[in-house]
Write a protein that binds this DNA or RNA. Structure first.
Length: 269
DNA sequence: TTCCAGGCGTATC
DNA sequence: GATACGCATGGA
């Protein structure tokens, strides 16, 4: 990673990074692709309440608009996981033919270090749902509050007051998660430090958080790269290519392997 | 019209 | 512990 500050923007040089592959691959739901400017792929989105406009100027070169060096170093460098060498990770994962193809297919995927509370909500909403509709529900939620609501803010909602979301049967799950988090019964800072099996169990005490959602919260909201969410798509990959489980060289970074595989299988043929 | 979507809770055995 | 089924909503 190299960067420089220029006219209030950050110019970033970063290998193994592609905006479409990272921001529109189903790990985060608050990034919108803008109309292209001079053929540049541009996205607008948020980390917590911080907005960002970012574009891909040319191969491996990005512009983070209206971003100070301090904000870049304290927020976005971490969010985009820029201290991790994904080239090295892909090299390690490419010991296997299928994973090699997956890494080559979408080599610009990076794991976003998202907020754990936002991930809880996002992936509760994701269950038995499709990505465009997930984005719609989250967008209505943020528009309603003017920001992504805290657990305390959402704890005072009711199924009726959330009707505008059109989130269906998931509304009661969101409220249960909010009440338990706001009261401290679920302590996300505590869960982050737990042994992963304990963390899974604790997360699953929330109604609407099952094995898949818990795994997504751990992977996308707590940077537990050993978490391995299995959804309908990954189930297909596993049945077809890995009936006996993932190869052992993925140990510790199963979740990153999952991201490459998910994107690969969804776009196959 | 029917099927399906980054699943989960509940009932039943 | 395994398996079957309903669930809100809307895009394809």
């Amino acid at each position: 990673m190299e960067y420089r500050s220029e006219n209030g923007n950050i110019i970033l040089f970063q290998e193994d990074f592609n905006l479409d592959e990272t921001l529109d691959c189903g790990q985060a739901f608050r990034w919108e692709r803008a109309a292209e400017e001079d053929g540049r792929c541009t996205y607008n989105g948020f980390f917590l309440d911080k907005p960002l406009k970012i574009s891909e100027a040319e191969e491996s070169c990005f512009i983070l608009y209206n971003t100070s060096e301090e904000e870049f170093l304290t927020v976005w460098k971490d969010y985009f996981d820029l201290d991790t060498d994904y080239g090295k990770i892909k090299q390690r994962l490419s010991a296997d033919d299928t994973l090699k193809k997956a890494c080559e297919f979408a080599g610009g995927i990076r794991l976003l270090k998202q907020d754990s509370w936002e991930c809880i909500c996002s992936f509760i909403i994701s269950q038995n749902n499709n990505i465009p509709r997930i984005k719609g529900i989250i967008s209505r939620l943020c528009e309603h509050y003017g920001h992504f609501p805290s657990a305390a803010e959402m704890a005072s909602e009711t199924v009726e007051s959330l009707e505008y979301l059109r989130s269906g049967f998931r509304a009661k799950y969101l409220i249960d998660a909010a009440v338990k988090t706001a009261s401290g019964e679920i302590d996300l800072n505590e869960i982050e430090k737990m042994d992963i099996q304990q963390a899974r169990q604790k997360l699953m005490t929330v109604k609407g958080i099952g094995p898949k959602v818990a795994e997504c919260v751990l992977l996308f909201g707590m940077y537990r790269t050993e978490a391995f969410p299995v959804d309908v798509w990954i189930k297909r990959v596993m049945e077809k290519y890995y009936p006996d489980g993932l190869p052992s060289f993925t140990a510790g970074i199963e979740g990153i392997a999952q991201q490459y595989l998910f994107h690969y299988i969804r776009n196959l043929k």
